[in-house]
Design a protein around this nucleic acid. Structure first.
Lengths: 218, 218
DNA sequence: CCTGTTCGTTAGAAGTTATAACTGCACTGG
DNA sequence: CCAGTGCAGTTATAACTTCTAACGAACAGG
């Protein structure tokens, strides 16, 4: 190989096949869930038979890991795009909601039921802290809320996860509750727990967001 | 059969084997997750081979459905027990947390990633509303909070899920946020999303609960 | 042109769920 | 008490799954 950096036709083909495999995988996941993902079915859909996929991915787990990575990356990009013009918590919240609703199974791939044995690769935690950083920016820009809580004091001593972000403990707390509360509404909505109840998940989401930002009516 | 009500030895044996199958299934789920549940492995563990289990359960799906039902039942019972002496939101919250921590996979079986094709049987929604009823009792006993929100107005028109409970819209709102917020913290904790961050999930849970009950410091 | 890497194939092992057919035992009913 | 029925559990089989191994073919670079 003359130049390791230049993409040879082989490498380009390989990359293309890899992305096509992942596309098919996403389709399957969206329709049948991650647990029903079948390498065989993907291969058959692509016109090649079974074990050929093992040239591109070490196995089912490695493929799913790659998809998890892509999902994290996609969410991080969405957050970056949403905070392009000003770090706004509301914009971030609706970006998250749109992203989740666009492909619920992708959301659950990240924030859903964990597989007991599985450990996420290290770089996903890096992307995760990237996401948290933009969220912290937005939370730091928010007007100060009520008095400091006991948990704020705890955060003062445990702010390593903020990765050196200069936000005050109250902002850290806000980012955490942003995450947990919106995830609470979103995950229950995506799982269909509100469907039989007649309430509008969007309005509940909005209400939680209002409470989070210290909105007019509350 | 002389008396259809009396349990014949046959029926008793059958019930015993059914419960043993479910016990083994719970062990497997706790250690490897619901997606890795294997009828074959259960059968082998019980000293009988494969297809014998189909005498007791129609298949993997039917077994899991039964486990979901049991999980709902278990949660409803713990809620009832927790509200035995007075309907206290805090007691309910910690009962929920203890129940979830005791067997995370059981929690995820109810509130985790949904299987796209699967539809929960109707009686689970009945148990679910039973759970919601005790939660509503506790929320109605709470002192009134801030002014009515826009979402409260929405709840005024969509209170069918409360199943005739006389609680005011604000209490309904409180019950909903109790559910979504505590689920938000709990599910992320159980999924291990806080492990690398250094914060104490229990304190975050307590902080959210304090905010929910209008606690002293906030 | 020739050589070596890589891609895709088929074959096969070890699993899984699930159905069908068969064997006995145990209980039920007279 | 005894005959007969029904059910438990067995094996065999089909159709899946992931994944390894060995082989053939095609392509890239010297």
């Amino acid at each position: 190989m003359v130049n390791p950096e230049a993409e040879t036709p082989r490498a380009r083909y390989r990359a293309q096949v890899r992305t096509e495999i992942k596309e098919r995988a996403w389709e399957q996941i969206a329709t049948a869930g991650a647990s029903a993902l079948s390498l065989n079915a993907i291969a058959k859909q692509m016109g090649m038979s079974g074990p050929a996929l093992y040239r591109y991915f070490g196995g089912r787990d490695e493929l799913i890991t790659e998809l998890v990575r892509d999902a994290y990356r996609s969410l991080a990009d969405t957050f970056h795009a949403a905070s392009q013009d000003g770090a706004d918590v509301t914009a971030l919240a609706y970006a998250l909601r749109d992203w989740a609703l666009r492909d619920p199974q992708r959301y659950f791939l990240i924030y859903g039921t964990p597989v007991p044995g599985y450990r996420a690769p290290d770089d996903t935690t890096a992307i995760s802290s990237e996401i948290m950083a933009t969220l912290l920016d937005a939370c730091a820009a928010l007007p100060p809320g009520g008095p400091a809580t006991q948990f704020d004091a705890h955060l003062e001593d445990h702010r390593d996860w903020a990765d050196g972000h200069p936000a005050p403990p109250a902002a850290l707390h806000r980012a955490l509750t942003f995450w947990t509360r919106l995830h609470g509404v979103l995950s229950l909505e995506l799982a269909g727990h509100f469907t039989g109840m007649g309430i509008d998940p969007a309005q509940l989401f909005a209400a939680e967001l209002d409470d989070l930002t210290g909105a007019p009516a509350h």
